[in-house]
Amino acid sequence: MNGFPTLSARRAPRGWLISALGLALLLIVNTLPPLLVVRQALTPPDEAVQMPLRLLPESFSLQNLTSLWTTEPLLDRVTLSLGVALATTLLALVMGFPAGWAAVRLARAGRTIASLSLISRVLPPIVIAIPLTAILIPLGLYDHPLGLGLVLAHLTIGLPFAVLLAYAAFRDLPPELEESAIVNGCGTFEAFWRVALPSVRGAVAGAFILVFLLSWDEFAYALLIQLTNRTLPPLIYYYTNYGELGVASTLAVMMLVPAVLVIAFLQGLMTRGPLAGGVRDT
């Protein structure tokens, strides 16, 4: 680290107070709204419409959850969200990491492919989703019960990230690693699988988190491609639109749980567990 900078010779007490107030404001503005969602989820519906609202509801109730459970096949929705996110992540990693490794080997052509990934990232989902639906319909992938069409759509978002991350990670790898493996008798593919890939474990974990969350949170494609069996984000939008904010909030809380778990889990692995040491020091 660089050490702390000091911009002035003395610390003005007035500046300190402003700083503290600012931090407090930041804390409130950023953490209060998510907590309000939890509060809204636990508020009974008839109390939710009485103005003015208070910070804490008069009574806590799980009515929103029970009414959601009885009217919506929740298990199907959550399974779909999870399944699509996992499938997208696995496909993106399986396709993206070998591609990133190969792109590094191919020098100039490789840079072109990495740039292509950047361009793909710029195209917005809604632009592609509309004609993509027309393509998916004859294939029977539109509104598929297992979300297969949606997995393909999410790949367009996740794959560029996986390729770019892999490209950056493999490019920093010293060539000696693979070279020594090959000297010792490995074929190319073995060198990749046994030496190169494990050396970028940190990037793999990072890409996993990133692509999983991108798919889990994705809204635009899911809104257009899945109608009958929906993932959680469009479902939240549906309930918000109909003014059922308590139910929408319950779904929102449910959405947060796996996201937090995935991050914490893989963060832990990256710093302490089996994946530790996979991240290269800059």
Binding site: I137, Y142, L227
Partner: peptide, 14 residues
């Protein structure tokens, strides 16, 4: 939308 999509795909679930 669902009906039109299913009609085009000649295969549906509804």
């Amino acid at each position: 939308s669902s009906i039109e999509a299913e009609a085009k795909a000649d295969h549906g679930r509804l």
